[in-house]
Design a binder for these strands. Structure first.
Length: 568
RNA sequence: GGGCCAUUAGCGCAGGCAGGUAGCGCAGCAGGCUCUUAACCUGAAGGUCGGGGGUUCAAAUCCCCCAUGGCCCGCCA
């Protein structure tokens, strides 16, 4: 047998899905809309989206779902929500809390943040169907699952105990046993105050747990931990919610989920994925999904945690970089490894992407054949638009970074002309419009601003220098200081004067004639190496020995300014 | 208490499951070029693969232990 070495990790999941022998494949993911949803969630969503593409190509009928867990209770709020608002709504399900922003007309807290995320999907090339848990719980399908859970409470408790017990220490074991005595698998939203849980003095969460299930009446009794109301409600009232560990398998069973990726919070030993699978089988008679666990995506050396003020949304990403690049980062990395997404390393991500592109279009080849295969496999999965027949040319990130940073001295129209010329020189099949160009500059600007923020909070000078190199093309000092002038030798100064004369006496100079003139002055008039003269000019303009190609650069600059600067 | 991830050159990372001369990008160094939009070419340099043990003819890779950094799990979600 020819063992196929090194296949993409995605294919291993695909194989497991195919082993299920179904034609209709449902993939799902989930997220509680408790605030701005950060970039990390796209890891699981993109894994599913890639699976969808691979499976659709194999003629499977794939349905991708995203559950917004809008019926989850607000146990705490992020810092950007006002204290007054927090007090008023803590303990309510997010779907029953109004939008926290005054000037926003949207329906609820859950909708606001959920939609903020899902609005970015088209731009990331993600196709899925959004389902809201608060709507799901109004449906009979789900309510039947609640009934089954209430009727089988002992079975559930046994499964939970079996899985959780070995993972906790002695002290917690006692508490666990005690807690299970009164435990029921569902909670009730209070008819009076809309709350589903409260916090005690020690910040422990006390849910409005079902107290008793009246099987003959198909009703439950409960006591609201927040307002003290005691009541009885039908299990078909839509006021009940399953505890998370049962909620999840219930959804799997209803939608026959074949695969769902989950972050490590859920996929640890004895965690909700393990208990979910067993409950799904024994309680709801469905095998459950193929388990895919993934590590967190971190922002540099920080975790993306709302509580620590590190919120980096997909929207924010799109404002500074291309979505294909992000897809590539996710798809190249095995899900069980954490990703440190480093904003300052963006150009490396672009380089990797371009390498992949070149290999896909046969313009480049790596020595190791397996690596070529993997990259060729990955590339189409990163694409958002239709894949072109030949590689489409794009403006290099470094050029954009450069152009962005000279915007303060050179008008956008002139820059655009330069870019058009660049595209002509490099035989671009399609030139971008000025609007598109402005868009690119805006992204680049945002990126540079973000890197500058990182620079501000970096204390280590060595690291600071490393980072600043990545964006710091150059700056034009307003004055040339004497220290710099002292470095320039007499014959170099003479050369600069000759250039100045040339610029003064000739109008409408083009880049190459300036370039050539510098060269001839150096070799013929001064008999020095052109390099020396180039260096002198760079020193006078930029204060350092090198810089952008001089001919085009000088034509960009204001002539009067140049003549003044060269007057030495 | 139970798990997961990371540790490889100055910086960022790949390789590890399937053991066989340690790789990529950037930075740095030296040189070239009518030369570079910091985007080109060439060359050299840089690593006891976190530490220790084991298995093996052979370990960055497999097994065990430890260290450091980070995260997750027990109620709730």
């Amino acid at each position: 047998m020819n063992k196929q070495f090194q296949i993409h990790w995605l294919e291993e999941i695909v194989e497991k899905i195919i082993d299920r022998s179904v034609v209709n494949v449902t993939l799902s993911t989930g997220k509680t809309p408790s605030g701005h949803i950060h970039l990390g969630i796209l890891r699981e969503i993109l894994i599913c989206d890639a699976l969808r593409r691979v499976l659709e190509k194999k003629d499977y009928n794939v349905k991708n779902l995203l559950f917004f867990d809008s019926l989850d209770a607000a146990k705490r709020f992020p810092a950007y929500i006002s204290e007054e608002f927090q007090k008023k709504h803590i303990g309510k399900p997010f779907a029953l809390i109004p939008c926290p922003f005054d000037n926003c007309q949207c329906e609820s807290y859950a909708f606001h943040f959920g939609n903020e995320l899902s609005n970015t999907f088209p731009r990331f090339g993600i196709k899925l169907k959004v389902l809201w848990t608060h709507e799901l719980y109004k449906k009979k399908d789900m309510q039947e699952k609640i009934k089954i859970a209430l009727e089988n409470n002992d079975l559930i408790k046994n499964i939970l105990k079996k899985n959780i017990f070995p993972t906790i220490d002695e002290k917690n074991k006692e508490e666990f046993v005690k807690m299970q005595k009164t435990w029921m698998p569902a909670m009730v939203i209070c008819e009076k105050c809309n709350r589903i849980q409260n916090k005690d003095k020690n910040d422990n969460i006390i849910p409005n747990r079902v107290q008793h299930y009246y099987a003959d009446e198909e009703a439950v009794s409960y006591k609201c931990e927040s307002c003290g109301y005691s009541g009885k409600t039908s299990i078909w009232s839509g006021q009940l919610k399953l505890n998370w560990r049962i909620d999840w398998p219930a959804k799997w069973a209803i939608f026959k989920t074949i695969c769902e990726p989950a972050g490590k919070d859920h996929s640890v030993k004895g965690g909700s994925y393990d208990t979910g699978l067993e409950l799904c089988q024994k309680l709801y008679g469905y095998e459950g999904p193929v388990k895919v666990s993934y590590e967190w995506l971190r922002l540099g050396d920080y975790d993306m945690k709302t509580s620590k003020g590190i919120v980096f949304t997909p929207e924010k990403y799109l404002n500074m970089a291309e979505p294909e690049i992000y897809r590539a980062i996710i798809l190249k990395t095995n899900p069980n490894k954490h990703i440190a997404f480093r904003i300052e390393e963006l150009s490396q991500y672009y380089d990797y992407y371009e390498k992949m592109e070149n290999i896909y279009f046969g313009l480049d080849k790596l020595e190791v054949e397996d690596e070529n295969k993997i990259l060729k496999y990955t590339y189409p999965l990163t694409q958002i638009k239709q894949i072109p027949k030949i590689k489409s040319k794009t403006l290099p990130l470094k050029l954009l970074t450069f152009l962005t940073q000279i915007q303060n001295i050179i008008s956008i129209d002139i820059l655009y002309k330069q870019v058009i010329r660049f595209m002509e020189d490099n035989k671009f099949e399609k030139k971008i419009s000025i609007e598109e160009f402005k868009e690119l500059l805006k992204k680049s600007r945002n990126w540079i601003d973000e890197v500058n923020k990182i620079l501000e909070r970096t204390k280590d000078l060595k690291i600071k220098r490393e980072i600043s190199r990545k964006i710091d093309i150059f700056s034009i000092p307003t004055k040339i200081n004497n220290e710099v002038l002292d470095k320039i030798e007499d014959n170099q100064i003479l050369g600069v004067r000759l250039i100045r004369e040339f610029l003064e006496n000739n109008k409408n100079l083009d880049a190459s004639s300036i370039q050539n003139k510098i060269f001839t002055i150096a070799t013929e008039n001064l008999k020095i190496s052109p390099k020396k003269l180039f260096e002198a000019i760079y020193l006078i303009i930029l204060g350092k020995k090198n810089g952008p190609r001089l001919g085009p650069f000088l034509t960009l600059l204001d002539k009067d300014w140049l003549l003044k600067r060269f007057n030495i």
